[in-house]
Each structure stands twice: as C-alpha cells, then as structure tokens.
Simulated assay, not measured.
Amino acid sequence: MTSLKQVVGAAIVDSLAYPSRLLVARRSAPPMLAGLWEFPGGKVEPGENCTQALHRELMEELGVSVRLGTEVEGPHEQGWLLNERAAMRVWMAELTSGVPRPLEDHDLLNWLDLGSAETLAALPWIPADYPIVAGLLAAIGEPVDTTGPAPGR
C-alpha cells in the first residue's frame, strides 16, 4: 500500500476506565459532508507526530485538552481507510480541560450513550467512519452491526 495522507481522530468518552458516553461532532463543511457525524480530529501536519496532531486538532476544533487512551486499531498500518488518498488513526480520549464547543468545521456536538449501539449505528456518520464505530464498540465490548443506516434513512 502506498503512503496515504495521515489523519487522526479521537473517540472522546466520558471515562477511559469505564466509557459509557461518546462525544460526536456534526460536520458543517465541506458541503458534501455537512450534516454528517464524525470523530473530531484532522490532518497530521509536517513536523508533527500523530498524537501531537490530535492534541492540536482537538484544541482548534473543540477547545479542549484530552488524555489519550488506547488506539482503536484499524486494519491497515495507517489505521482506517477514509478514501483512496487518506487513512485515519483513532485514539480513545478523555477530557482533561475545557468544555467542548463546535469551534471549527462543526456545528453541533452531542454525547451519545455507548450502551445504545443501535442509536450509534443509526446516526448519519461520514461513510468511512462506520467501520471505526464498529471497531470502537468492539474494543469496549459492545459489538454491533454498523454497516450504515438502513435504506430509506
């Protein structure tokens, strides 16, 4: 596999030790992704490693600092394929300071119950994030079918 643009994301939970809620962010841009939900994060810039980029992105996008937990490991060396040009690595994270606000690229944030896998699966995620949701739920012991919303949704 050729080198892909590296993107990083956070599965921000209420507690790394006993996660019960997940913070999700609704995209406001670009137009083709507006209204879809995602894990907050962004591109790794030159001179940054993945975790440095994730901390920077979360401060820029949400105004928060986090403690990173384990990585939600994807099936590829660079994590989860987003498209033919980019892949994303995702870490579990817990807030350490700040109150999450949609500062950049998002118009809404919401805490969702991790015990309601059906609610998570039914959310209109960016399509590439559905496998990551399944990986996250499997990592915390809540398996679910997250192949995407049922036709007609």
Rank of each mutant, 00 (worst) to 15 (best):
E60H: 11
M88C: 12
V64R: 04
P75M: 01
G79K: 07
G135Q: 09
A25F: 03
A25C: 15
E94A: 07
L62I: 09
A138G: 02
E142P: 00
R89T: 08
C50T: 12
E142T: 15
L33Q: 10
V90E: 03
V90L: 10
G141M: 08
S116C: 08
I132A: 03
P131K: 00
L62W: 09
W91K: 04
L114C: 06
D107C: 06
W80M: 03
E77W: 06
V66R: 01
M32Y: 15
R67A: 15
V66A: 05
V66P: 13
Y130S: 00
W91E: 03
T119G: 01
P31C: 01
G115L: 10
E48R: 01
R67S: 15
Y130V: 00
R101L: 15
E60G: 01
E45K: 01
E104V: 08
R85F: 10
L68M: 09
L109S: 13
E45L: 11
E60N: 11
P19L: 13
D107G: 07
M32Q: 14
E73T: 14
A128N: 03
P40I: 08
A134S: 13
A87R: 03
G115F: 11
H55W: 07
V64C: 06
A29C: 02
A139Y: 09
A128S: 15
P100A: 03
L114S: 04
L120F: 12
T96L: 02
L36T: 12
E38Q: 07
P100G: 04
V144A: 15
A138L: 04
V64I: 15
H76E: 15
E118D: 15
R21I: 02
L58I: 06
G135T: 00
M32H: 14
A53V: 03
Q52E: 14
V66Q: 05
S28D: 06
E57H: 12
W125S: 00
L120C: 09
T70P: 05
A138N: 13
V72C: 11
L95V: 11
D105R: 14
G35W: 09
P31H: 02
K43N: 10
L68D: 08
W80V: 00
W80G: 06
D107H: 05
G42L: 02
T96G: 07
G98V: 09
F39Q: 07
Q78V: 06
G141D: 07
T51G: 06
Q52D: 13
S15R: 06
